[in-house]
Design a binder for these strands. Structure first.
Lengths: 132, 132
DNA sequence: AATAAAGTTGACGTATACGTCATGTGCAAC
DNA sequence: GTTGCACATGACGTATACGTCAACTTTATT
């Protein structure tokens, strides 16, 4: 197994295109808990994966609080039936939201592609006029 | 043509599942500009469509400022070549963003569906144990 | 006409997600 | 031993997106 490097907060942030401040902020919100070497935070492969997941979820418009819950789904150890059923309900609710979002996305993309197409048509028409 | 009804702000808000305050806020941000009857705002079919578009874009994680630009794309009258080229660039940038988002969405949905599946397996297993 | 219901414009408050100092500490190089 | 980073922890500031009064004017109903 490779990539068991430990990265500093600045390295980690740079690799992800965010700031160290942001990463520390996520920590205060309980989204990650890297190990420490002395007082310094060090991030392992799993931590970096978690951060990528956080950023992906953010791009989808989730709040950090949402994302915390979402991450808990991964960490959820199968404890009690009742908790598992709650988990299932949450997951399926989220799936429904994302499916709605998929629809929204498709519609919006269609609209934008149509605008793009029409704009290109317009530009081509004017270019040929200019060349006459 | 139907639906040329004019709706009040409260009606409009209720129909969309938002508050009148939110709609007024969108107006101060230049996202909509309904007509007035006296001092009162009235919303026509087009306005309601605009509001739906705003909400759809919000669900996709766009800021109101983004959405304002986005709406301007619809209103853009074909003026100057240069402006049209800028428009095209913006639109295609946005398309690229949304395509990235589509990928994010697909990944996240896969992950959640897998969690859902495993949770259901777990629940079924425990139910059959209980019935023995 | 009087009262209630609905709408209007400020103005201030609030949650989220960081940015930006200020101040301090540990370690490496000189 | 001190200079210089890289990192740490507060603490305060800021942008976004409204919520929540307050005070007032219209519009609708009795």
């Amino acid at each position: 197994m490779r990539d068991e490097r430990l990265t500093t907060i600045t390295e980690t942030a740079a690799a992800l295109g965010i700031t160290a401040r942001a990463i520390r902020f996520y920590e205060t919100k309980g989204l990650i808990a890297p190990q420490r070497v002395g007082a310094n935070r060090v991030y392992n492969h799993r931590d970096r994966g978690r951060l990528k997941l956080i950023l992906r979820a953010k791009r989808l418009g989730f709040s950090l609080e949402d994302i915390r819950e979402y991450l808990d789904l991964y960490d959820a150890d199968p404890v009690q039936l009742e908790q598992q059923q709650l988990l299932l309900a949450k997951v399926e609710k989220r799936i429904a939201e994302l499916e709605q979002q998929q629809t929204d996305l498709a519609i919006t993309l269609d609209e934008l592609r149509e605008i793009s197409r029409q704009t290109r048509v317009y530009l081509e028409r004017n270019q040929s006029e200019e060349s006459q």
